[in-house]
Design a binder for these strands. Sequence first.
DNA 1: GCGTCCAGGTCTACC
DNA 2: GGTAGACCTGGACGC
Length: 316
Amino acid sequence: MFNEKHRAKFNTVPPYSFELTVHKPAGWWWSTPNEIFENDVLWTTARFNTRLYGLRLHSTGTRLKQTVHCKIFSDKRMSSREKGDITCAVKRALRVEEDISEFYTIAQKDKILREPVDDLCGMRTPAWPELFPALILAVTLQMAPMKRSNQMMDLLIENFGDKICFDGRTIAHWPSPEKIAGLTAEELKAKAKIGYRAQNLISIAQRLREGFPTADILWKMSPDEAKKELMTLRGIGDYSADIVVPGMGFPLDVWSAKIFSILLFGKEPESPRGAIPELKKAAEERWGRWRGYAFVYVLNDLPRISKRLGVDLTHF
DNA sequence: GCGTCCAGGTCTACC
DNA sequence: GGTAGACCTGGACGC
């Protein structure tokens, strides 16, 4: 039985939008695809140190002075250390303490970002509460259209995930590394239809179980160091590492390469995959360490950017 | 209905 | 160090 065991309150560095941070316009979730967001309240789940918790989050105030309120639900007693650790992890994943004023200064002078930062004022980039779900996302996005990636993720959660009931809601959560590490590739392929990715996911789960740097440790590294570490995992290359790395890289795939090629160079690339290195370089030169923010703001504002440009960027 | 093609990357063998 | 080819699966497409 999951009951409320702890409460916390987070002040935010303005501008901050709780709604846009946890419930992105493009449809991305904050912790699990099955979380519920209703009337500015998020019911979600997260696993810390092998234990699953229920979270109820909501905000008060305006984007210039916003507070996020968090209730933590557990089926076991929580020590004060556990409460402190989880509170820190949730706070970090909400990015409430991040000062993005430098990004806004750059964006307001930038032809591509000027309007998206107005449209999505206060939105923060993803900072996955847990490492393994972010790696599952990256692996299932590889070589597959979005519909198929969603099918793989849904089947992984349905067949190997965990479900908890708290605060009147039932939420299904991602499988644990322990669960996936114990499966055979044949079983994973048959039940989750993830094909050749099965062996990669099992290998990643085994590395995590055997002592891969935790999210805490990765956050303490420089982005380059963390990315290098992530790329030692089987099946995690440049693109996947950019999705998972703390602070968000610039994870260009052939879909987003077409969009950024139009925005940065004014035309569709002849070879989207071939254009990726050049586009990454251009983004780094233009937006520096804020390129991850540029990526997320553009891809979450495509309908409005398309309307302004008179070019449909949503059809790729 | 059936066959073919290929996708929102990564790894490996080969040069 | 650069690059072609293989990799699961299922949806889209042509016939």
